Simulated assay, not measured.
Amino acid sequence: MSQPRICIVEPDDIEQELLQGMLEDDYQVCVFSSGEEMLTTLTPDQPTLIILETLLPGPTGYEICRIVEKDFSHCFTYTIFLSAKTSVEERIRGMEAGADDYINKPYDVVEVARKVHAAMEMLCSTSGLKKQLDYASHTAFQAMSAQSEMGIIMRGVQDANKATHFGELSQAMFSCLAELSLKSTLYYEVQSKPRFEASAGRNSTSMEQEIITVVRRSERIWTRGSRCIFTFGDTSLLVLNMPDDEEKTGRLRDNLCFLMETFEVKVDALNQQQALTLARDWQHSVKEVTQLLNIASQDLQHSIDGSTKTIRNMMSDLEMLLPSLGLEEDQEERIHHIIDTAFDDYNHSLQKTEQTGLIFNKVMSKLKNMQ
């Protein structure tokens, strides 16, 4: 697989030159004036970072992003929107179209460099995993096609590579092991949380889980009688009924090691994919919370303004009314004292409310910086 490249889709010539000048010393950069032109260059063999202006001749950046998500899902891509529109609605619209990040115009050189570097690291990591998976599948096809055992392992590798979530992956593994007549328990980690799953018709016992946990700390391949544990990275396989035939057992060990290498790489890839999805969901939630806090802050300010106006009007009315009531001087003084005390209490309460408003603003500012 080729090294990742950057596609800049920007109709403005000056903006093209600016972005290209920033990036071409460190990366392979291609520049396009329209999204349709860029789409013709996407291939599964070359991961691509797409820096995409939202306002384009022909299909908009949002439409191009949706096409990439739908029709080029077999390609490794990462999309960053480029736009002078900075509203939350525009960002949400970009996220719904399938974009991975957003850069505001006029852009900061440091921000552009940081986001491009992070995106290219992710693409390199993903393509590296793809290389390993492709290599594993190719080696399996070459080494196992001549024998039935090897053919079973080959299908298991292919099915594992096709899995889009952990349930499909474990099912592919157990289907392969069942064809080899092996009873087994799988261990793997999902976002650093351990999982134990047993083959069909049985449950993983506490003893099995304890043995896997202890053995995986010390030995890559552990054998005791008919039981064998294979450990690769954050994954392990316990086989309970390895055959008595020494030659067959030797072949199975080699083949199961290969199968577990593929399983480990795929678990890593799914964990990275899930982490990216969780990050996108978290970013969406942060945006929603920011919007709600903004509304609450505005409502709070309206309430403060309304209450202040009401209190001032009431005090003005009382000041005008008192002389006409014919009260004694000491009575007026007592009423003035009551009014002054109430006004002081109100001002104290208002200060607390304003402090709450400041806290709202600080929280919203921090949330915006986290997006």
Rank of each mutant, 00 (worst) to 15 (best):
I80S: 02
S87R: 12
F174L: 08
T126L: 07
L177H: 05
Q158C: 06
G167W: 02
L169D: 01
I153W: 02
K131T: 13
R114Q: 10
T213A: 11
E208F: 01
V116E: 01
G167P: 02
S145H: 10
V214G: 00
G167M: 04
S87L: 11
E210D: 12
M144T: 15
Y187K: 06
Q147E: 15
D134A: 09
S87H: 12
H138M: 12
R202V: 07
A143S: 12
G94K: 03
A84E: 08
H165S: 06
Q147W: 10
L180H: 03
Q209T: 07
A113N: 11
A146G: 05
E89F: 05
S170C: 01
V116G: 01
T205F: 04
A163F: 00
I211T: 10
C176Q: 05
S204G: 08
N104Q: 08
Q191E: 12
H138R: 15
M207E: 14
E90A: 15
I92K: 09
K162R: 15
E168G: 09
A163T: 08
F81Y: 07
P194G: 00
Y135P: 00
S145G: 04
S181G: 12
T77C: 14
I153N: 01
S192G: 00
R195S: 12
L129H: 09
V215H: 04
E89L: 14
F141G: 13
D100L: 04
H165D: 14
E197T: 08
L133D: 04
M173Q: 06
V215Q: 11
Y135V: 04
L180Q: 08
G156Y: 02
A97E: 05
A178M: 06
Y107G: 03
P194H: 02
A118T: 09
L82R: 02
A198S: 11
I92R: 11
E197N: 05
